[in-house]
């Protein structure tokens, strides 16, 4: 059980990189970006092919995974901004296309990384630490670096224009920013992170699978809402940007812990996607319903007085 939990934590941190990408589009840009399902698998497939078929260094493979994800996000962005396809449809079109593209890249539906070095096996060899600990520590360092970079970026002039785009497009255009560019940029960065996470997960589980991205967007959204609910319980209510990013990664870890627990309790792994969807629905609908009930209660109180 303990081992399962440790595995869940390190898995949660690696997936947390993907969740940060989803956070950029979903929370900062107000777009639920369906590309994620495809670009996560794309990152995994590109990474696997780079490691196994091309025999490249695992770090270079990771870079390729990131670039591939960025390209996928850029395509979605162009479909959405230049051709004015609604954001959700643009994402779905990219996602569907990526299924075929990913199969083309791998040439088969999965690629094992058994015979090649990964970033994790490299660190294990160099330090002599056990694989599970390496995967946990490395993931942690990696996530901290990504959060720091994102925090810095969204504090720059471009980053702040990007945040404003999700807030008030009319204003941003009136202030001289082309919102088409900021949207494409945000989708590119977000999917670069997703592709990167796909590559990381591929190296950590030592295989890439055509279906590894299926439901990734739901996992991302579930992790975000879990992180936000937890954030609301902290004294500061998490209004500052850096704690919000950290909460997103924590949400991802908690999601995978919940997942590990229910799997241990004997739930079928295939039911997990249903559970993720239920978590998202609950998190999104509870505030709406409670507000409506609150309004009704307030009215009755007023009437009685």
């Amino acid at each position: 059980m303990l081992l399962a939990l440790q595995g869940a934590v390190s898995q949660g941190i690696l997936w947390g990189v993907m969740v940060l990408g989803v956070y950029i589009t979903f929370r900062l840009l107000n777009i639920p970006d369906m590309t994620v399902d495809g670009s996560f698998a794309l990152g995994g497939c590109v990474c696997a092919v780079a490691c196994v078929n091309l025999g490249l260094n695992p770090w270079i493979a990771l870079l390729f995974a990131m670039i591939a994800g960025a390209a996928a996000g850029c395509v979605t962005g162009i479909l959405h901004t230049v051709f004015e396809i609604p954001a959700i449809l643009a994402g779905i079109l990219s996602m569907i296309s990526l299924w075929s593209i990913n199969l083309r890249i791998m040439g088969k539906s999965n690629t094992p990384l058994l015979q090649v070095d990964t970033i994790f096996s490299g660190i294990v060899k160099a330090t002599g630490l056990p694989q599970s600990l390496v995967s946990l520590l490395f993931g942690l360092v990696f996530a901290v670096v990504i959060v720091a970079v994102l925090y810095w970026f969204f504090g720059t002039e471009i980053g702040s224009a990007l945040r404003a785009t999700g807030n008030n497009e009319d204003m941003v255009r009136a202030l001289g920013v082309d919102t088409r560019q900021t949207k494409v940029l945000a989708l590119t960065i977000a999917n670069a992170l997703v592709g990167l996470a796909g590559g990381l997960v591929c190296q950590s589980q030592k295989y890439a699978d055509i279906g590894m991205g299926t439901g990734a967007i739901t996992i991302g959204l579930a992790a975000i809402v879990i992180g936000e609910v937890l954030g609301r319980l902290t004294p500061g209510k998490l209004t500052a940007f850096a704690p919000r990013l950290i909460a997103v990664v924590v949400g991802s870890v908690v999601y995978f812990i919940i997942r590990a627990i229910v799997l241990q309790l004997g739930m079928n792994a295939n039911d997990m996607k249903l559970l993720s969807a239920i978590i998202v629905v609950a998190a999104l609908s509870v505030p709406v319903v409670s507000e409506r009930l609150g309004a009704r209660r307030a009215y009755q109180k007023g009437g009685a007085a």
Binding site: T156, I158, V172, G176
Partner: peptide, 16 residues
Amino acid sequence: ALAARRGKRRGLRVCI
């Protein structure tokens, strides 16, 4: 700060 950069090139400098 967003408004102060109207018509200027936005880069990777700190936003305020």
